[in-house]
Simulated assay, not measured.
Amino acid sequence: MVISYDKLWKLLIDKKMNKTVLKEQSEITYNILARLGKCQPVNLESLYKICKCLKCNIGDIMEFEME
């Protein structure tokens, strides 16, 4: 199973927000942002901060894809 954050990047485009603004507003680190960019796992606290910032649910920013 592979993690995909494609929904997050599409949502950022829809909200006309870039990654730097997301990082600052959600108070996540550059390391978390880099892990998201590489489709690597991140902790739930970081995902919660992103969802809170974007006013969405976790399913709106990520999904699991079968290999």
Rank of each mutant, 00 (worst) to 15 (best):
K52H: 11
Q40Y: 12
T20N: 11
D14N: 13
L33V: 08
C56G: 06
E67H: 12
K7E: 10
I28Q: 03
S46V: 10
R35H: 03
P41A: 10
N57S: 13
K19Q: 15
E45G: 12
L33Q: 07
M1L: 11
Q40K: 15
N31G: 12
D6Q: 14
E24L: 13
W9S: 03
L22E: 04
E65P: 00
L44I: 14
M62S: 10
M66I: 14
M66K: 15
M17P: 07
I61Y: 08
Q25V: 05
K10L: 07
I61N: 04
N57P: 01
S26I: 02
L11C: 11
T29K: 06
I61F: 07
L47H: 03
N18H: 12
E65F: 02
D6A: 13
L22N: 03
K52M: 05
C53Y: 07
L22I: 05
D6C: 01
V42L: 04
K52L: 12
S26N: 05
C39Q: 04
E24F: 07
Y30E: 10
C39L: 01
I32N: 00
Y5C: 02
L22A: 01
L47W: 00
V2T: 09
Y5I: 01
R35L: 05
L47C: 07
N43A: 06
L8V: 03
M1R: 11
S26T: 07
E63H: 13
L36W: 04
N18C: 11
I13Y: 05
C39D: 15
T20Q: 11
C51W: 01
E67T: 12
K7R: 15
N18E: 10
Q25I: 03
I3W: 01
S26W: 05
K55Y: 06
V21P: 00
A34Q: 06
V2Q: 09
F64C: 13
I32T: 15
E65C: 09
V42K: 02
I61R: 04
M62V: 12
C56T: 11
D60M: 12
F64W: 15
Q40T: 05
L11F: 08
N31M: 05
N57D: 15
M62Q: 11
M17G: 06
Y30A: 10
L8R: 02
N57A: 11
N57I: 02
E27H: 13
I50T: 03
S4L: 09
S46C: 13
L8D: 02
I3G: 02
